[in-house]
């Protein structure tokens, strides 16, 4: 799964710590999602989409 988390976060000038606070997850988790080491669950993906005000498919896409 690919994602645009890092780019979207940079656009807003947020650090990983800022985003992790908004999502109520650890900074370690934000880093793991950004680097593609972890695919978030559906509830977390929805939280991410709400935080960025974008639909899930605008943030995540199939790697193929």
């Amino acid at each position: 799964m690919k994602n645009r988390l890092k780019a979207l976060r940079a656009q807003r000038g947020w650090s990983q710590a800022d985003l992790s606070e908004r999502l109520d997850v650890s900074r370690q988790s934000v880093n793991a999602i950004e680097t593609g080491r972890y695919d978030p669950s559906l509830p977390l993906a929805f939280r991410i989409s709400r935080v960025f005000g974008l639909p899930i498919e605008a943030i995540f896409s199939d790697a193929d």
Binding site: D24, V25, S26, Q28, S29, A32, Y38, P40
Partner: peptide, 11 residues
């Protein structure tokens, strides 16, 4: 402690 993990830490 485990309940305080987020989903990535649990996984």
């Amino acid at each position: 402690a485990f309940n305080r993990f987020d989903e990535f830490q649990r996984a």
